[in-house]
């Protein structure tokens, strides 16, 4: 008799309860969310998706002026535009994915308050649409890269086989962003203080990641701290793969992967707990 019920709603669920079947059933919604993100973002703008490439161009110019020019931070022999753009493209992907995941509850309170669907759909589609944005910017990076490769003399630019790991880097960055975003988002539903911390925390975190400087330029005594940052080996490895600077640190990448497994695990637990009752606390 009881096995006839299709759904049972109970107060306490298992502490790890990811509705993978549900996520699969709602895959069309996942696609719709990605579509919505892309379509609505630049509605009523003239340049439309061009903004995707204008942003990194201007940021690169700005960084060249401030960090390369005024501060005179080394780019480890790589051409400045390429060095900064490589950092910006990856960092942009991280920060965008983080922000999307971090605002899951606050921006979707309205929808979550009315209909049930597996909430994980929203951050997953969020990191996917920022992935698409990143890919567009990557095309720009490749164009600039080709330009420098053929016009610049005596350059140290070299592609090497480790670049094949690029999809893995992207996977790591996206899910690092999502798991941190979800953990903080879940806690923010109850303790709003975190909202203020996150605003400048993300900015500070960028400086703790080798985005605008190479790890080798950091003083020896701080390098250990930078190496604790799970994003450091990824950024370094990407630059190593295409710019010929940076380093490929297998230990670092392994550390980053293990780190991700742990945070992802925690984030999913916290998230599924909070999604059950967040309407009462938000």
């Amino acid at each position: 008799m009881s096995n006839e019920w299709t759904t049972e709603i109970k107060p306490k669920k298992k502490w790890l309860d990811v509705d993978l079947k549900g996520i699969w059933r709602y895959r069309d919604l996942y696609v719709m969310y990605i579509k919505r993100d892309i379509v609505t973002k630049y509605k009523q703008t003239i340049l439309g998706p061009l903004w995707y490439v204008i942003q990194p161009i201007f940021t690169t110019i700005m960084y060249m002026f401030v960090f390369g020019g005024l501060a005179g931070i080394s780019t480890d022999g790589a051409p400045q535009p390429l060095f900064y753009m490589a950092g910006i493209v990856l960092w942009g992907y991280f920060s965008e994915s983080f922000t999307v995941s971090n605002s899951v509850f606050s921006t979707n309170a309205n929808v979550f308050g009315k209909v049930y669907f597996p909430r994980l759909i929203v951050p997953l589609s969020g990191i996917t649409s920022s992935l698409l944005k990143m890919l567009i910017q990557l095309v720009l990076f490749i164009i600039v890269y080709i330009y420098y490769y053929f016009t610049l003399e005596n350059h140290s630019l070299s592609l090497n086989w480790s670049l094949l790991l690029f999809p893995f880097y992207i996977f790591l960055i996206g899910f690092h962003a999502m798991s941190w975003g979800l953990i903080i988002s879940s806690l923010t539903t109850k303790y709003r203080d975190l909202k203020f911390l996150v605003q400048f925390g993300l900015q500070l975190f960028m400086y703790a990641t080798p985005v605008i400087y190479p790890l080798s330029a950091a003083p020896e005594k701080y390098r250990v701290i930078l190496e604790l940052n799970p994003l450091t080996p990824i950024f370094e490895a990407f630059k190593y793969g295409c710019l010929g600077c940076g380093s490929l640190n297998w230990g670092g990448l392994l550390y980053s992967t293990i780190f991700l497994c742990i945070t992802l695990f925690i984030s999913v637990i916290v998230f599924t707990r909070v999604e059950r009752n967040f309407m009462d606390t938000i």
Binding site: T7, E8, K114, N277, M279
Partner: peptide, 18 residues
Amino acid sequence: KLLSNITSPTTGVIRYKG
């Protein structure tokens, strides 16, 4: 809200078909 699974009950069970 409980029935549509938006928030979970403190006690008891809700069951439905479909």
